[in-house]
């Protein structure tokens, strides 16, 4: 099966020591590799103000991970770990590979069309404003 890509964001309590957060990340990495997935990117966004209160907290420590896996079970396991963890107050996993695929397709489409007819009016496949912008850049 082809590979899937997930974004995983979790928020820790703002008063957690950095070491504790690193521990959470390393356990996640461990679980992921165990299940045959790999973590492509780990970003600590740091303490940020949340848009609303979660567990009566106004701030949270955001951590962002990009995971690649060929099956979805990893996500289940990772989310279970996050749920169990005391320091994590919120998490979200989003599958993004299909959207990236769509993005690639649109990009290819646009490039091909720009190459084909550099200055003629584009067909009505795209909204007129986009076609106009395109013309401006190709000219």
């Amino acid at each position: 099966m082809e590979e899937r890509q997930y974004d995983l964001i979790f928020i820790c309590r703002p008063d957690t020591p950095e070491a504790e957060i690193d521990k959470v990340i390393s356990t996640l990495e461990h679980t992921a590799t165990e299940k045959g997935a790999k973590i492509e990117k780990t970003e600590k966004w740091g303490r940020k103000r949340m848009a609303y209160r979660v567990h009566r907290l106004r701030e949270g420590f955001y951590v962002y991970l990009v995971i690649r896996s060929s099956h979805g079970e990893v996500v289940k396991e990772l989310e279970r770990r996050l749920k169990v963890s005391d320091v994590v107050i919120k998490y979200l996993t989003i599958r993004l590979d299909e959207e990236f695929k769509r993005q690639e397709k649109l990009k290819r489409h646009r490039e091909r069309r720009a190459a084909r007819r550099p200055r003629k009016a584009t067909p009505a496949a795209q909204p007129p404003s986009a076609a106009g912008g395109e013309q401006a850049t190709t000219l």
């Binding site: 974004d7 964001i9 848009a51 962002y64 989003i94 959207e99 990236f100 769509r102 993005q103 649109l106 990009k107 646009r110 795209q126 909204p127 404003s129 986009a130 912008g133 395109e134």
Partner: peptide
Amino acid sequence: KVCRFCVDKVDFIDYKKA
């Protein structure tokens, strides 16, 4: 009014950029 995303030719709107 023109679509801001069409002007910038955005193919993917990132949810992370609040």
